[in-house]
Amino acid sequence: MSEKKDWPLWEIFIRSRAGLNHKHVGSLHAADEDMAIENARDVYTRRNEGISIWVVESKHIKASNPEDEDSLFEPADNKIYRHPTFYNLPDEIKHM
């Protein structure tokens, strides 16, 4: 291994078609952001898998802690009134 450090790790996001979100596809190492985009093209889009690439250095991503899953998502769990099926409408109304 080199005396100097490894190239930093980048997370790669690809938009596969116009109209779709960029989606996380994996990661790779590159010396800088331009090289990250070029490498992402070669590694993740060899078969027209994308029309746009985002790269973010992995260290800049802050992730939620899986151990907090319950408390973090609990507020959404018990609010059934946020869903359309919570409301009672007369049968005559077919679409609303």
């Binding site: 291994m1 490894d6 990661s27 790779l28 190492h29 070669d42 590694v43 060899r46």
Partner: peptide, 26 residues
């Protein structure tokens, strides 16, 4: 060229477990 890509997908999957590319290559 695909095989190189496969190697890279897999190294990055392994890196999510806390090892580094340098360690694996070593």
């Amino acid at each position: 060229q695909d095989e190189a890509g496969h190697g890279l997908y897999l190294y990055s999957a392994a890196e999510t477990l806390g090892t580094t590319r340098g360690e694996m290559i070593d």
